[in-house]
């Protein structure tokens, strides 16, 4: 029983982990991308569309293409969305909050429009389902069952779940132990200093935002392919995008802390279903738990005000070289 709960918490946490890792990389460049919920939604929708078109186009879908096509479609969709954000905020210096919120609205609309259209055209108003593809995504390690509870908790996930953890670990390593990581952090902390040191601020901001968007988009793909088993429903993604942004704060802008944080959030998110006799309003209160925890973390870090645990100093601010 407890193993099942943890397994579910992890599965629930993986999309948040993708989202928060992507957002941390983005924020380290000083860009506060509030478009992440929209980007994740687009990433998921593009993946489904890619998978569906492939499944329709061939008699017997091949495992390799079933993985690669949705993966590419998702990456392209979310990167393009992040590129829109980058162009508006970095090149045109639009307000980051407004641009991000607009992108979220746009991303959700984009996903609903194309997903809905495809449901209407192909599935005739029924469920848009890509079960074949989803099954490949859900394939777990063959020997998972031999390890009892350990196997159920840690080994019985689709490959994207492991990818999420590995990407988060890599991101932590990249930020703290590489030259490019140091440069990226300096861009988010103090772009004028980075600029004076000869670092191409614009390049780092674009790359971080687009790569961050691509990673976040995978969270949407995981949700549809693995978590829901390949059936697309309008609005099914819920508020997970915002949870991912809350997780960034909870993890204190550290991707490796985000791994643990995502499992905690996932557990809190589904806690209500394991407590019997809850009324609907009580469920709503339980759904708030991750946000409550985030607020508590915010209060604690603000009170302690340790510099390392604060957001990047120039987060949300546009940069342009001062000219006299």
């Amino acid at each position: 029983m407890i193993a099942t709960v943890i397994n579910k918490a992890i599965a629930q946490g993986i999309p948040l982990l993708f989202g928060s890792t992507g957002e941390i990389i983005t924020e380290k460049s000083g860009n506060l991308n509030l478009g992440i919920p929209g980007i994740m939604y687009m990433g998921g929708s593009c993946g489904v569309i890619g998978a569906y078109l492939y499944e329709q186009a061939v008699e017997t879908p091949q495992a390799f293409w079933c993985i690669v096509i949705p993966l590419l479609a998702s990456l392209i969709g979310s990167t393009l969305a992040a590129l829109i954000y980058s162009f508006l905020t970095i090149t045109l210096r639009a307000n980051q909050n407004v641009t991000g919120l607009a992108l979220t609205t746009f991303g959700v609309g984009f996903g609903d429009f194309f997903g809905g259209s495809m449901t209407k055209i192909f599935a005739d108003g029924g469920n848009l389902s890509v079960k074949t593809t989803a099954d490949y995504f859900k394939t777990t390690l063959p020997f998972a069952d031999n390890f009892g509870a350990f196997g159920e908790i840690f080994l019985s996930h689709g490959f994207l779940a492991y990818a999420a953890v590995i990407i988060a670990l890599l991101a932590s390593w990249f930020l703290n132990h590489t030259r490019a990581g140091l440069h990226l952090r300096s861009v988010g902390e103090n772009p004028a200093t980075a600029d004076a040191a000869g670092i191409n601020v614009t390049k780092y901001k674009y790359l971080a935002t687009c790569i961050g968007g691509a990673i976040a988009g995978l969270g949407g793909l995981y949700f549809i392919m693995d978590y829901t088993g390949g059936s697309w429903t309008s609005g099914g993604f819920g508020d997970r995008g915002w949870l991912a942004i809350a997780l960034v704060i909870f993890a204190l802008w550290k991707p490796n802390v985000g791994i643990l944080g995502s499992f905690v959030f996932g557990g809190l998110y589904i806690a209500y279903s394991y407590i019997s006799g809850l009324s609907r309003s009580a469920v709503a209160i339980f759904n708030m738990l991750p946000y409550v925890v985030t607020i508590i973390v915010l209060i604690f870090t603000s009170v302690r005000s340790k510099k390392e645990n604060q957001p990047p100093q120039s987060l949300g601010l546009p940069y342009f070289r001062e000219e006299r």
Binding site: E189, N190, A194, A196, A197, E308, Q310
Partner: peptide, 8 residues
């Protein structure tokens, strides 16, 4: 005016 990153 020093050009340094505070948290580094």
């Amino acid at each position: 005016h020093f050009k340094l990153v505070d948290v580094f």
